Simulated assay, not measured.
Amino acid sequence: MARRKKIYEGKAKILYEGPEPGTLVQYFKDDATAFNAQKKDVVDGKGVLNNRLSEFFMTGLNNIGVPTHFIRRLNMREQLVRSCEIIPLEVVVRNFAAGSLSTRLGIEEGTPLPRPIVEYCYKDDKLGDPLVTEEHIAAFGWASQQDMDDILSLALRVNDFLSGVMMAVGIKLVDFKIEIGRVYEGDFQRLVVADEISPDSCRLWDIETGQKLDKDVFRRDLGNLTDAYTEVARRLGVMPKSAQPMSKPTLIN
């Protein structure tokens, strides 16, 4: 196999040059990180599960008219995506108080919020991805006002879709974060949901028991992360009901 050109490597994924102009290959790693990479580990099978789950969510969004960068899954760990210019923001949508919101505002974790709250964080690991306002975003030129209107609309549509999908399988969507990219088609620009949607980027709790089925399992040492992600995949039908937790999968190219 010819050696591929690496474009970017993050904490959980690697981007390679794609086979066609305007495409990239997104590779999902088994690396798990928390607290801005202060806590690290390798979790066998996590990348495979996140690849399949992100495929499921991105395909669902594409099908209801929410544009994403996802084109198709290539194999167990890779998917073909559109190349896009990532806006340097993490867009966080919260339905229940948890994590940093509970800490910042002193709201008990699990408290339902009066309406979905959308927050923005500046993407910079060295700074710890600080919370920013629309004033900061406009002042520093990270996105235009029209972009922000479109980002808010996209974020709330993703929230509606994910909340419904999760509720149908007995899972509460507590919060999630997405990234938004610009895709250029000649002189025309459009915004798309980029990066990934997976239990790495969502807080997912069992509706009946409150069991955490997301990366908080790793953050808080609550058990086996692969088991939690496998349970989400099972409920969504991404994996057979009889499937066992994935460990050291054999890659298929």
Rank of each mutant, 00 (worst) to 15 (best):
M1L: 15
R3L: 15
K5P: 07
K6V: 15
Y8Q: 08
G10L: 07
G10Q: 09
G10W: 10
K11F: 07
I14Q: 12
I14S: 12
Y16N: 07
E17C: 08
G18R: 07
E20I: 12
P21K: 11
P21C: 02
G22M: 07
V25Y: 04
V25T: 13
Q26H: 12
Y27S: 11
D30H: 07
D30G: 10
A32I: 09
A34G: 09
A34F: 10
A34D: 05
F35K: 11
N36I: 08
A37L: 08
Q38W: 13
V42C: 13
V43Y: 02
D44C: 14
G45S: 11
G45T: 13
G45C: 12
G47P: 09
G47W: 14
V48E: 15
L49H: 05
N50T: 10
S54D: 06
E55G: 08
T59A: 14
T59Q: 14
I64V: 15
I64E: 01
G65Q: 10
P67Y: 10
P67W: 08
T68L: 00
H69F: 03
L74E: 11
M76G: 15
R77M: 09
E78Q: 14
R82N: 13
L89P: 06
V91F: 05
V91H: 01
V92A: 06
V92F: 06
V93M: 05
R94W: 02
R94N: 06
R94I: 02
N95S: 08
F96K: 12
A98R: 01
G99S: 09
G99E: 09
S100K: 09
S102G: 13
T103V: 12
G106V: 03
E108A: 12
P112E: 06
P114C: 09
R115E: 14
I117S: 03
E119Y: 10
Y120A: 10
Y122W: 13
K123D: 01
K123E: 02
D125C: 03
D129F: 01
P130Y: 05
P130S: 06
L131W: 10
T133H: 00
E134H: 04
F140T: 08
W142A: 02
W142Y: 09
Q145D: 15
Q145R: 13
Q145I: 03
Q146K: 11
D147V: 01
D147T: 01
L152C: 05
S153G: 11
L154Q: 07
A155W: 02
A155K: 03
R157K: 15
L162D: 01
M166V: 01
A168Q: 11
G170E: 05
I171R: 04
I171Y: 03
I171F: 04
K172S: 14
K172D: 14
D175C: 08
D175T: 09
F176V: 04
K177M: 05
K177C: 03
I178K: 07
E179G: 06
I180C: 11
R182P: 01
Y184A: 15
E185Y: 14
G186C: 11
L191H: 11
E196A: 08
I197L: 15
D200S: 12
S201I: 07
C202S: 15
L204Y: 06
D206A: 06
D206V: 06
L213A: 01
K215P: 04
D216F: 02
V217G: 00
R219N: 05
D221K: 13
L222C: 03
N224G: 03
T226K: 00
A233Y: 03
R234N: 07
R235H: 00
M239P: 00
K241M: 11
K241I: 08
Q244E: 14
S247T: 13
S247A: 13
K248I: 13
T250I: 15
